[in-house]
Design a protein around this nucleic acid. Structure first.
Lengths: 346, 346
DNA sequence: TTGTATGCGTTATCAA
DNA sequence: TTGATAACGCATACAA
């Protein structure tokens, strides 16, 4: 509870000098600075954030808005943001804005309006026009990770490219009957649709028919969709491109359940490099949500230093990681199999 | 950027009256209150949190400290806390305190000392003595979810009881050769050790030998440990009690890999009721981390209202959910099998 | 029921 | 290089 007045008194200086000595702004002689700092340490002085904010207009705090905290991608991004902010001495206040909830409305109407932060990071938010307007009306720097288009800085995976390369990986192995599992489901994320388009375009380029199997972007969702798909012998593909690793793993589990060996009878490729991917030997296109979070935080912090910094749009390229869930289809032997143990870079 | 002075001017009253009209404290006539509120709405006035904090000493913010945000249990608790705080108009600032990191030191030394919150919720923190001292030295109400013993309010699952009932479930089905997978690994959580003790005590009560298989509390960890355990025919049990559902699911996947049908050749029971549990037909003892988060938040809010409220220790009882991963062992037919489709309460 | 005046704990401005 | 003093934006005790 010691205030700066106590520190000043203990050090035998004025509040103003004490403040300068502690914040490092303005001229203070070395000896007095040392005296002040020692006094502050002895008293356990910590500046009141409220008073500092009121006086400086800065909160040393960053707001993070995301629709879910308990999903792999979001939790990883959050972890990355947290880590980067911590390093720079910034606090993080979290706003949960699950779509369609009353809470989300309140977040936009009340909570964000309080401006308890110097800037905002929106993760996978997919705001409505109205919500986007409010976000901008706040008048604080905004950086997005996925989900917001247009006027603000954005960091996101190049989804079309990732889906294309996943598809091409299977094409290169000799597959022609390839299905895409994911997206096309109510309440699903926009990215799933984009990845689907990447897959469809690639199949079209190869002159092959596309097959879309809708599925929620979750392990149980991918499992259920894949059981349906693979259970019907007439529709059964030799390769699956999944919209994310959880769906891909669901497909692998479904295949095992149906007695279809992976990869000899079915190849599966995902997008993410989820923490479970290695255990399932899943071939996947790695995106690193954690790094996306770090980038977002650092972009925002840089914006604090230079408010006129240009709006940047950062498109990350996924890295293909080949494991053991993909192989040439049953008919074709091991022509391109040599590739199957390498790990290539973007 | 409109301040209360602008609102007061627009409504033709003093700042004091405007403040009273907006906060609801003190006497204000209905007509003027309405005028003020209308003016505030029109100007889009929102009180500066910094100024309010400085004037009242309250931040309307709660700090949450947890070692991980990207693990199922923690993410669920966080979600519950967030939800409850949102309903009461409180912000949430998050502090990541991963054990053994430099960041954790800074969180305790700098970040928490800033007291940007009216109270603190510690989730699974397992603080050192020194850390616990600091936590208390902050001088703000503290509520813990797991991980802190003693002097503060705590909400936690009754781990011993949960492990005991998981074990008894297998015993009731006729199993005698039951292993416990989980715990006993460096960096593991304290709860795993407690659950292990519950299992061991129950086995001892039944006059049966215990078998402990160390494992990290994760899906890959449980998978690896179970492959080892089940791969050795001489050690192979007919039942597994897992320290959590992720480990249990790892065990199920391992069993399938080894061609051991579940539940006919191996029964597996977990603790959690993880979101994947249903997909794997996992019998488990449900704890609800989300509700634990809600309870913790509400306990803290109540403490704000009544600072002298007694310290409470809330031990939650798990609920047995019987699915299809447990059955009588191969030898014993269907004596107690009728039970296997019911769902019992604590 | 309303207005005036003061304080909350810092930083920032201006003289000294 | 330092010190007195005025903001910062609001809530509140007290006076009217």
């Amino acid at each position: 509870m010691a205030g700066i007045a106590d520190v000043a008194r203990a050090a035998g200086v004025s509040k103003a000098t004490a403040s300068r000595a502690l914040t490092g702004s303005g001229y203070v002689s070395e000896p007095t600075k040392a005296r002040v700092q020692e006094a502050a340490a002895k008293l356990g002085y910590v500046a009141s954030t409220a008073a500092v904010s009121l006086a400086t207009g800065k909160t040393k705090n960053v707001g993070v808005v995301m629709p879910y905290v308990n999903r792999w991608f979001f939790a990883e991004v959050l972890d990355g943001i947290q880590d980067a902010l911590l390093r720079h001495g910034y606090d993080l206040t979290l706003y949960d804005a699950r779509p369609g909830t009353e809470g989300r409305v309140r977040v936009f109407d009340e909570f964000l309006a309080r401006k308890r932060f110097d800037g905002l990071i929106a993760v996978g938010l997919e705001p409505s026009d109205n919500e986007l307007d409010r976000l901008i009306a706040i008048g604080r720097p905004l950086v997005s990770v996925v989900g917001v288009s247009g006027t603000t800085s954005v960091i996101a995976l190049d989804d079309v490219n990732a889906a294309r390369r996943a598809t091409e990986h299977l094409l290169d192995l000799g597959h022609t009957n390839i299905a895409f599992v994911g997206g096309g489901v109510e309440g699903g994320a926009h990215v799933d649709g984009i990845r689907l388009e990447g897959y469809e375009a690639t199949m079209a380029d190869a002159g092959l028919p596309a097959c879309h199997v809708p599925s929620p972007a979750s392990l149980p969702g991918g499992y259920a969709a894949s059981v349906d798909l693979l259970g019907d012998v007439r529709r059964r593909p030799t390769g699956i491109v999944a919209t994310c690793d959880e769906v891909a793993i669901g497909a692998i589990i479904a295949a095992r359940r149906l007695g279809l060996p992976v990869p000899s009878s079915l190849s599966v490729v995902g997008i993410d490099n989820h923490e479970y991917a290695e255990m399932f030997s899943l071939t996947t296109l790695e995106q690193s949500p954690r790094e996306q979070g770090v980038h977002a935080a650092e972009l925002l912090l840089q914006r604090f230093r230079d408010p006129d910094a240009p709006v940047v749009e950062m498109r990350l390229q996924a890295t293909l990681i080949v494991r053991n869930s993909t192989a040439p289809p049953a008919g074709i032997p091991s022509a391109a199999a040599g590739v199957a143990t390498t790990r290539s870079v973007p």
